[in-house]
Design a protein around this nucleic acid. Structure first.
Lengths: 142, 142
DNA sequence: CTGTATCCTTAGGGATACTG
DNA sequence: CAGTATCCCTAAGGATACAG
């Protein structure tokens, strides 16, 4: 039987930067995982399974693997608990923050159903750059 | 036979703003259409068909319909040519610009294959806010 | 030129059982 | 807890022919 060679890269459709972003996380699930790691304090496989959108186990495993290959997410062991697996964002993953903030701002402006509080969105609009710097310095400190 | 009622809304998975963005344009094609309308001066169905990524006719028609429903793209008639159809971005669509710029910047930073010139990316990093204002004022003038 | 329609194949993904 | 494996089904999408 033919074994699929994982090291083969998907052929990319073009070298456009928008297309690169789409091929990295242009599906219905990947950005939700990144959101949970970035904003919702989730670190473990089990925690990532519990989001509102109800990702299934096989999809989550597949996406985490992809994100590791792309060096957006890193997999490590918990220092205090050797058996526990911890996922975290790499620098490349953390650099998605401005994108996440713009997505949040746009949806907050146009989706009446959004759960993001208006006060947060207002703050975002005014102090986006400072917000980015604050969160980044928080990471550097840790 | 059962007729699918187009006015039925897709049930949304959650009220998270990231999820709203994903359900608006979280697929492999939509953002490429927006890119072509926003940056590449394309206006017609035929022009939109000719991009590097080779979208097929049925997919293009489907996405344009969705984008119209979402009020991101508007369909109009060419003033000088009554038979020609013109697509353009609505204000909601133009508000995707900051997202597009962040996507471009991120890909430019991490994709060695990107076609965006480094000089453009450097300029983007330094003068993003001014760039947004310049392009916005251009639209307002037209 | 601007789409529709159809055919057909593959990829995505839900449900769930199972394993170290 | 952290995944794998399997089953099965639907949506996504390529190719292409056709229509107004």
């Amino acid at each position: 039987m033919f074994e699929y060679v994982m090291t083969e890269k998907m052929p990319s459709r073009s070298h456009c930067p928008i297309n690169y972003a789409l091929e990295s996380f242009g599906d219905k699930w990947t950005l939700l995982i990144i959101r949970d790691l970035m904003f919702n304090g989730k670190q473990s496989y089990g925690e990532l399974l519990t989001s509102d959108e109800k990702i299934s186990t096989n999809i989550l495993a597949d996406r985490l693997k992809r994100l590791e290959d792309l060096d957006i997410v890193a997999k490590g062991a918990d220092a205090s608990n050797r058996t526990k697996v911890i996922y975290s964002l790499t620098p490349k993953g953390r650099d998605l923050l401005p994108i996440m903030l713009e997505l949040t701002e746009w949806s907050g402006k146009y989706d009446a159903q959004t759960e993001a509080p208006k006060s947060f969105l207002k703050h975002l609009e005014n102090d986006k750059q400072r917000l980015i710097e604050i969160i980044r310095s928080g990471w550097d400190a840790s």
